[in-house]
Amino acid sequence: MSFDALNLVWIFIAASVVNNFTLAYFLGLCPFLGVSGRLDTALRLGLATIFVMLVTSVFATMLNTWVLPHAPYLRIIAFIVVIASAVQLVETIMKKASPALFRALGIYLPLITTNCAILGLALFQTNREYGLVEGIVYALGAGAGFTLALILIAGIREENDLGKVPKIMKGAAMSFLIAGILSLAFMGFAGLFSSAA
């Protein structure tokens, strides 16, 4: 039991910081550039993404167990349809349960469908043959890592807007440079594994 718990902790740490979806795998760069201008929208989008990742992970496990063994060529189509439905589901529930949060998220909610981090999560989870609990922990870790990266960049960009940036570096170029430096910093976490193993 204790071994299982430790394994789950490692899955969480690996997904959130060591193999950070945004900074190490380049997944979800579109929202990363689009909404990382302000801290509060970054946080909200991060939370919505974590939720969709959780739902997707559960559905992906179900598909992998019952449907896809019979029709492996349907994998990509099945996953993308599940993600689109999950986003729709989240939208409907949120509209009813918490209209304030629904309005605050606005356009970002439907856009989660085309966030490649979500499809990436479903695919990586399948490749690694995670079960239900492992998948949920993996989704939580990946979502937390995505949110962490989004918040870090948003914070730096808010400060950076006040500073003197060379004219040609303004906008996207500067965001990428900041992301590169953060990515460099996150590589330091790779040491966690070699020292533990």
């Binding site: 900074l23 795998y25 380049f26 040609i168 990428f176 590169g180 990515s183």
Partner: peptide
Amino acid sequence: PPGGFFTIALLLAFLA
């Protein structure tokens, strides 16, 4: 990974 971010940042700056 960091090299990817640096390359696109410098390419964008060069185009600008």
